[in-house]
């Protein structure tokens, strides 16, 4: 085989490399050298730890978190927020009973630890509502509902806004909460807590 033939083989081989492979090669080598230097000096062991049994005790039931968040919400927001949230829960439960919307958990049997029927109902109605956040409020809101007369809840909300925002008509209650969600970044509020 002549030298000319060998050159042809090199230039026309069957293998390909990724685009810009040779252009970036020197940078990659430099990266590796820096990386090795850092590893040699510091290693790459994870320096963080967690409280004892953190992972063992970590619950897959997402309702484990809500209480503390709710307490914070109540502390920093106006009372009517809790009232509005409470009302939407009442409405949601009412809707659930009326419409019998398909519950995805029912398809999976009754061993659901998430207890999220209310979320799914709301989600089907108006996806932009922060449904899980409403779920957060649920246990405390239920307590609030138990302890508070329904008329008083409506009164609280209206009084706080100095105008009649809602009445016992479920449609206006629902709309009120939708408007609240539109005007306020509820997700952001929770994330900031």
């Amino acid at each position: 085989m002549t030298v000319e033939n060998l050159n042809n083989i090199n230039n026309n081989n069957a293998f390909k490399v990724p685009e810009n492979y040779f252009d970036n090669f020197s940078q990659e080598i430099e990266t590796r050298i820096f990386e090795e230097n850092i590893k040699k000096q510091f290693g790459n062991k994870n320096p963080f730890k967690v409280p004892e049994n953190y992972f063992k005790d970590f619950k897959s039931d997402i309702s484990a978190k809500p209480k503390s968040n709710f307490a914070k919400i109540i502390r920093i927001t106006k009372p009517w927020l809790s009232a509005a949230a409470g009302i939407i829960i009442i409405f949601t439960l009412w809707q659930f009973l009326l419409t019998g919307i398909e519950n995805k958990n029912n398809q999976t049997g009754n061993n659901d630890s998430l207890k999220s029927k209310n979320n799914i109902v709301i989600a089907n109605y108006q996806p932009e509502i922060n449904t899980v956040d409403i779920k957060y409020l649920e246990p405390e809101i239920n307590a609030y509902i138990d302890e508070t007369d329904a008329d008083q809840i409506y009164e609280d909300v209206n009084e706080d806004n100095n105008e009649t925002k809602i009445n016992s008509d479920d449609e206006t209650v629902y709309q009120y909460f939708i408007d609240y969600a539109d005007d306020n970044d509820y997700t952001e509020l929770l994330a900031e807590l």
């Binding site: 992972f55 970590f58 897959s60 995805k104 958990n105 398809q107 999976t108 998430l114």
Partner: peptide, 21 residues
């Protein structure tokens, strides 16, 4: 199979540590 609860529980158990870190 739309067994979302089972899927979710498996996800949590399988990935909680890796996601945490």
């Amino acid at each position: 199979n739309k067994n979302f609860s089972e899927a979710f529980n498996l996800i949590v158990n399988q990935y909680k540590e890796r996601l945490y870190w």
